[in-house]
């Protein structure tokens, strides 16, 4: 631990402020795009929920296409968390590992690697929803 501290004194600090500004702008823009897409679907007569779902679908597909063209990693480098925290970042982390394992075959290569980063996200999210639901259920029985 002592050496870690000593070594840390030699490395450059990340540019906290500019990184945060970039993340803020990138994240804000992605959310705005989501908002516009949703507005578009609302204007053709969809209800709130359907439009929201469609917006998600469009965002995910766009991000995955950009990943395929090799653009999303550049955006990610610029925007940092601003590009990885939105749903588009999730979509990126689904495709990116899968693409690399193409030569390992469509089943055990792409098919399993597609879950390598996204699997934990889906699983733990689902587990959280179970936990919350179960606690609520228990509380309902007690009270």
């Amino acid at each position: 631990m002592k050496f870690q501290k000593y070594a840390n004194s030699f490395k450059d600090r990340p540019k906290y402020v500019s990184n945060c500004i970039k993340a803020f702008v990138a994240g804000g823009i992605i959310c705005l795009i989501g908002h516009f897409i949703k507005d578009g679907f609302l204007s053709i007569g969809m209800n709130q929920e359907t439009a929201g779902t469609w917006a998600t679908v469009v965002l995910v597909c766009t991000a995955q296409l950009l990943t395929g063209f090799g653009v999303y990693d550049i955006l990610g480098k610029l925007g940092g968390a601003g590009c990885s925290v939105p749903i588009t970042g999730f979509a990126n982390s689904v495709v990116a590992p899968a693409m690399e394992y193409k030569r390992e075959g469509p089943v055990l290569g792409v098919g399993s690697k597609i879950f390598s980063l996204a699997g934990p996200v889906i699983l733990l999210g689902l587990a959280t929803s179970w936990a919350v639901g179960l606690i609520k259920w228990v509380l309902q029985i007690i009270f």
């Binding site: 990184n19 994240g27 959310c31 940092g80 968390a81 601003g82």
Partner: peptide, 16 residues
């Protein structure tokens, strides 16, 4: 929309 989304991402950036 912009500010909410941006702020949520900034928290992620600080964690990173």
């Amino acid at each position: 929309v912009f500010v909410t989304g941006g702020l949520i991402c900034v928290i992620g950036q600080i964690l990173l």
